[in-house]
Amino acid sequence: MKQILLATAAFGLSASMAFAAAHSVVRLGTEGAYPPYNFINDAGDVDGFERELGDELCKRAELTCEWVTNEWDSIIPNLVSGNYDAIIAGMSITDERDEVIDFTSNYTQPDPSSYLALDGAEPDYAAGVFAAQAGTIQASHIAASGATLVEFATPDETVAAVRNGEADAVLADKAYLLPIAEEASDLSIVGDDVLIGGGIGMGIRESDTELKDKFSAAIDAMKADGSLNALIEKWLPGSATF
């Protein structure tokens, strides 16, 4: 697992001219389909933990930010291609991703993943059938474990697969599954939590160190004054704080 990057960002008071020119508006890319981290609210706007966090970070870093949504599948290629400047989409810090993009300081503790199954079900963790969103760390985890993996394009469909019996359980971030388990009468969290992936951080282009440092500094500042913890308690109850 990747050690958390605790950036000791020494960031100057005045940003360089080039930075100001390139980042007069910072575009934040998110998926918009992963509550409570990010989702589209009734009004059609991006909402959730990361919306509130991102707005606060931009305020602290004195940046003008704009929210855009992008398919999960192509969220990194579009970042490196320059279609937006940062990914803030519940993305765990992993070695593979870190080779391609840079991450800011993490803004959540490593979030455990957990299994959600029909009430009373006891899935066989070594040989059962498990649903996961394609391209997530959970999908890789199940594939490596030897159990049968069923992949779906959206997190929504993974839960639907458990409901209709296609899969014994779904493996996903606990913070995503918890509200579903609380609201649904027929589903509950089962088994032990699984620790995969590091904390969640913002993904930034490797060539964009100045922006990374700015966001890291803002995240560290929020950690220090407790405002990040307040946000975590509000949106991700049950998750570890800093």
Partner: peptide, 24 residues
């Protein structure tokens, strides 16, 4: 349809590699 046990068609694997290498 969902892919079982990472058995899929050509696009599924192309997608897998694009996802892992981040290079489409």
């Amino acid at each position: 349809f969902p892919a079982w046990q990472q058995r899929g068609d050509a696009l599924y694997y192309a997608n897998y590699f694009a996802d892992k290498t981040f290079n489409p």
